[in-house]
Simulated scan of single mutants.
Amino acid sequence: MSTDPWALLDAARTVLVVHAHPDDETLSTGALLADLAARGTRVVLLTATRGEEGEIVPGAVDPADPRPLAEIRDDEIAAATSALGIPERHQLGTAPALAAGAAPRIYRDSGMRWIREGLAGPAVSSGEDAFTRRPEEDAVADLLALLDHVRPEVVIGYDDDGTYGHPDHVHAHRVTAAACARAGLPMLEIASGEEPSAADEGAAGFSWREHPGVAASVRRAAEAYRTQFTVLGEDPSGDGTLRIRHVGGQDDAVRMLTGLRVRC
């Protein structure tokens, strides 16, 4: 198997990408997925949870709207994936991402709290149906069922740190790695998204690629997530970087650049 992640992607006809919550596909891999879709690659998205524990941007939801947050976020991810050019998306625990003979199951957003500096854990309010509290083997079996249904050549998922330590991301990494190992499929791990300097290009084994021409699609996808963050506009640098502000007030950047490595 090639150790060049981009060679594997360029040769793949079908790619499955695994994310933890609605909006992760846009923030972590929006430029990559839009680029793949534009080049004719079949891109299939699997989302583990429905993002039920996410905070809401004030004023983003009409007080008269009776829908639960999970339903609102499902509409958001539908709009975002459409903008990125991804017509196929699935929910873990719902067929075809469900093990044969198993009853449908919900992997609820675990939320997040800092247990100590540098170590995140599920929110205190998370229940037994939270993604991180359900048996890992259930999620692995459900992902294996989807792999058998979709038959991708490559699977994209998080690295060991889950990009920023969210417990659902870390758990998604373990589930994806286990399923890929059993299925004999290459897993490509996503870098944190921080642009490398010339000095550390290729650090930690990541290989980087820019995605020109997809900024407008990524912006439309980001603008679909009105409950989660505010799109501030493009960075003055002119490289297509999108500036956003999370519900907690933190400013962030969505770059038209992706770092990947092959999980060994």
Score class of each variant (00 low, 15 high):
Ala79Trp: 01
Ala80Asn: 01
Ser82Tyr: 10
Ala83Pro: 04
Ala83Met: 11
Ala83Thr: 05
Leu84Trp: 06
Gly85Glu: 13
Ile86Pro: 01
Pro87Ile: 07
Pro87Gln: 09
Glu88Met: 10
Arg89Pro: 09
His90Cys: 08
Gln91Leu: 15
Gln91Asp: 08
Leu92Trp: 00
Leu92Ile: 05
Gly93Glu: 10
Thr94Tyr: 10
Ala95Trp: 06
Pro96Gln: 12
Pro96Arg: 13
Ala97Asp: 07
Ala97Ile: 07
Ala97Tyr: 06
Ala99Lys: 06
Ala99Cys: 13
Ala100Ser: 05
Ala100His: 09
Gly101Arg: 06
Gly101Phe: 06
Ala102Trp: 01
Ala103Arg: 11
Arg105Met: 11
Arg105Leu: 12
Ile106His: 08
Ile106Val: 15
Ile106Phe: 05
Tyr107Leu: 14
Tyr107Ala: 15
Arg108Asp: 13
Asp109Ser: 05
Asp109Phe: 03
Ser110Pro: 07
Gly111Leu: 15
Gly111Pro: 00
Met112Lys: 01
Trp114Glu: 15
Ile115Phe: 11
Arg116Pro: 04
Gly118Tyr: 13
Gly118Asn: 09
Leu119Phe: 08
Leu119Glu: 09
Ala120Pro: 00
Gly121His: 00
Ala123Pro: 02
Ala123Lys: 02
Ala123Asp: 15
Ala123Met: 08
Ala123Trp: 06
Ser125Glu: 15
Ser125Thr: 11
Ser126Tyr: 09
Gly127Thr: 05
Ala130Phe: 03
Phe131Met: 07
Phe131Gln: 00
Phe131Cys: 10
Arg133Ile: 09
Arg133Met: 10
Pro135His: 00
Glu136Met: 15
Glu136Leu: 14
Glu136Cys: 11
Val140His: 05
Ala141Thr: 02
Asp142Lys: 02
Asp142Asn: 03
Asp142Gln: 02
Leu143Arg: 05
Leu143Met: 14
Leu143Ala: 12
Leu143Lys: 03
Leu143Asp: 10
Leu144Lys: 03
Leu146Ser: 00
Leu147Lys: 01
Leu147Ser: 01
Asp148Val: 08
Asp148Ile: 08
His149Ala: 15
Val150His: 00
Val150Ser: 06
Val150Gln: 05
Arg151Thr: 15
Pro152Asp: 08
Val155Leu: 12
Val155Gly: 08
Tyr158Cys: 14
Asp159Phe: 03
Asp160Ser: 11
Asp160Val: 14
Asp160Lys: 10
Asp161Phe: 11
Gly162Pro: 03
Thr163Trp: 04
Gly165Ser: 11
Gly165Asn: 04
His166Asn: 02
His166Glu: 05
Pro167His: 02
Pro167Tyr: 00
His169Ala: 14
His169Trp: 09
His169Phe: 08
Val170Ile: 14
His171Lys: 12
Ala172Trp: 02
Ala172His: 00
